[in-house]
Each structure stands twice: as structure tokens, then as C-alpha cells.
Computed example of a mutant assay.
Amino acid sequence: MRTRLRGLRGLVLLPLLPLLALLLTAGCVSPGAGSPVSASASASASAGGESAPARVARPWRRGDPQLGAQVLWYTYPGETDPSVRANALRLVNYMVGRHMNAVSVTFPFATAGPTASRVGVSAATPSVRHLGMLLDTAAAAGLRIMVRPLLDERSLVARDPLAWRGSLAPADRAAWFRSYEAFLAPYLALAARHHVSTFVVGAELTSLEDDPRWRSLIATARRSFRGELSYDANWDDYVSRHVPVPVDHLGIDAYFPLARLGDDASVAEIAEGWQRWLDRKTTGKLPRIVLSEVGIIAENGAYRHPAVWTGGEKLNPTVQQRWFEAACRVARDREMAGLYWWNLDFHADPAAGAPAGSHTSFLGRPAEAVITSCFRTWPR
């Protein structure tokens, strides 16, 4: 399915990792958490001699738009505290330099297959302690923070090439939700202690959204995390029906296909296509909606299937640039609550630009300048 292919976006260079290492522990939260940002976060950022991060010129305040990027973190074997701190500092400084006031940290969890009734961490899941280092660095910079677990689809595709996280069919749904609640527990505790504003309790789990067990899971989440709870719906799910997960705010992973547009389409034409999609749900302002993922591959044909990130066509950075410009225009016109670009790999060096041969990254390409302009001029 097109969305399933998009779910593998940006991961083609990652080695295949062992699937499940269900090592959840309640005592993994970083020590010293819970103290004020100015104390614990600054101390964490400067631990080991690193420089403190640059500060956001205008930190997010209630009512401001969330202007950020999704930091995608698949951990590698042998990551160390110094390397994690260095990566966190490099990316946070980059985001501040691009006029961002927010960051969403996306990290993977795993399951054994489409019908499995358990989920958990894998070898690709960053440790709770290392996640805390990134969150503290972001907080020290004044960034608004969102935490977002995302189901890794590789085990699903291995069983069924058409499977994706939105088509899960657990053999025992009650067991699945118990397992998912247990998986989330240490990350909710992390969020409560490390300056997190929003926790995304689920993303693109379309086939499970109607389950009444969400209510109990979310009630449990609220007992340990007092911030905002959110859910990120897939683009087609959002426009076609009511998403019944009972959260404070809804995000959209926004990959609206524009099948009639060629590679030379204008920004205005792309924006009009986005507006038509959104109008299927509702017209007018959308002040409670966040565009939780906005991205597209930089190559020919991408407007027709923006959710597909497997590549194969000719590199075309202008396609990506105009898509970003249109998304910014639509989000501002609709007065949306925020926009997060997809994505910044946690291990990337923004100064080096896009990796050789990659069509997925916006680093060092015209779309990067669009991000800066969009956020610098966004009305607040």
C-alpha cells in the first residue's frame, strides 16, 4: 500500500536489526529529571565539556504555532553518551538556526508481525536514558518538545508486502493494548520528567482507532503525564472519517496525493490541491490541527504519490521545494496549530547536506531555505 511504502521512508541505509528485545524497565528514567529546565537541562547539555545549545529567539508560548521538525532516531549499536550529546547539540543548534521553536522526537518500536499481540522495544529503539539527553538539550535551547513512538514496519513487510502499521490485526486485541500500554509507560515517565509538552500516544494505527480500549490507555497515560496527549492520523484516514481516539489534539501525517499535477506544477497549484483534500473534511480555519509530518522525496513524479519514499526516479529538488512552499502556505492560511517537517535523522550532519545519492533529505537543498523563510515570517 502506498502509505506502507512511505512508512519505510529514509531507512534504506539502516542495517536490518533484531526484532524484539522486550527489555522494558520502569527505572530507566534519567536521574536528576524533574528539576527546572534552567538547571537540569543546561547541566545535561554541557556535561562532558560540550557547549550549551543556541537559544530560540522567541520560545513557544501557548497560542503560538508549533514550528519544528521530526527528529527520527533509529539507534545504532555502540552509541555512547558523548556521541548522543554531540548529535543532540548539532541538531538542536541547526533547528534554532532555522527559526524552529519546536521539535518532535520520533523513535521506533516493534512487533513480530501484522497479527502479533505484543509490541516492545527493538535493537533500533534508543534507550530511555539517551532519549533524555536529547530532550534536555532541546529544553535548554527553549524548544517546545513532543515525543512520538512510531511502529517500525519492517517486520510487517517481511510477513506481507502490503502490510503497514495502519493494517494491524492482532490475534488478541486486549493483549495488544495491554502490551502497548506497558511499552508506553517508561516513555510517559520520561516525558513527565524531561520538559515534554506533548506525548503522541499513537501514529497511523488506523485499523485500531475504533477500539474502545484507547479510552482506558489514555486515562492511564494521564496519570503519569500531565501534558498534552495527541494522536497522529494518516492523511486519508483524517479526511475520510472521524478519528475517535480521545486525545487533546490531532495531528495529520500529510501526504495528500495530487495525481493530476506534473513535475512543473506551481506552488499555487499544489496548495490548491492540498486545500481540496482538506475541504473534504472541513473548510475554514483548523486551529486545533497540527501537520505532524510534511515531507516529500526530491524527484520526478513525487506529487502523484508523496507517501512513497522508495525512490527510483530522476532527482528533482524543485519538486520538493515547491511542495514545502505549498504546505507552508496552506498551514498558515488555515491557521493550523503547527507544522513539523519530515525528517531530520538523529545522526545527520546538516552542514554536510544530503547524503550522496539520497533523494529523501532536504538538507542542503532549496527546500531547506523554504523552511527558514516559512518559519521566520510565520505570523505569531
Score class of each variant (00 low, 15 high):
Arg4Trp: 06
Gly7Thr: 00
Leu13Ile: 04
Val29Tyr: 09
Val56Phe: 04
Asp64Val: 00
Asp64Gly: 05
Tyr74Met: 11
Tyr76Glu: 07
Asp81Lys: 14
Ala86Trp: 07
Arg90His: 05
Asn93His: 15
Tyr94Glu: 10
Met95Lys: 11
Val96Gly: 07
His99Pro: 14
Met100His: 12
Ser104His: 08
Phe109Ser: 10
Pro114Asp: 10
Arg118Gly: 14
Ser122Pro: 11
Ser122Lys: 06
Ala123Gln: 14
Ser155Lys: 13
Asp160Ser: 12
Gly166Pro: 03
Ser167Arg: 02
Ala171Leu: 04
Phe177Gln: 09
Tyr180Met: 01
Glu181Asp: 13
Phe183Tyr: 10
Ala185Met: 09
Leu188Tyr: 11
Leu190Met: 10
Ala192Met: 03
Ala192Trp: 15
Arg193Ala: 08
His195Arg: 15
Val201His: 12
Val201Asp: 05
Glu204Trp: 00
Leu205Gln: 09
Pro212Trp: 07
Ala219Pro: 06
Arg223Val: 00
Phe225Gln: 04
Ala233Gly: 07
Val247Asn: 04
Val247His: 04
Ile270Arg: 00
Ile270Trp: 09
Gly273Trp: 07
Gln275Ala: 07
Arg280Pro: 06
Arg280Gly: 07
Gly284Cys: 02
Arg288Lys: 06
Val290Ser: 14
Leu291Val: 05
Glu293Gly: 12
Ala298Val: 01
Ala298Ile: 01
Asn300Phe: 02
His305Gly: 01
Arg329Pro: 15
Arg334Ser: 13
Ala337His: 15
Trp341His: 14
His347Leu: 09
Pro355Lys: 06
Thr372Gln: 05
Trp378Asn: 07
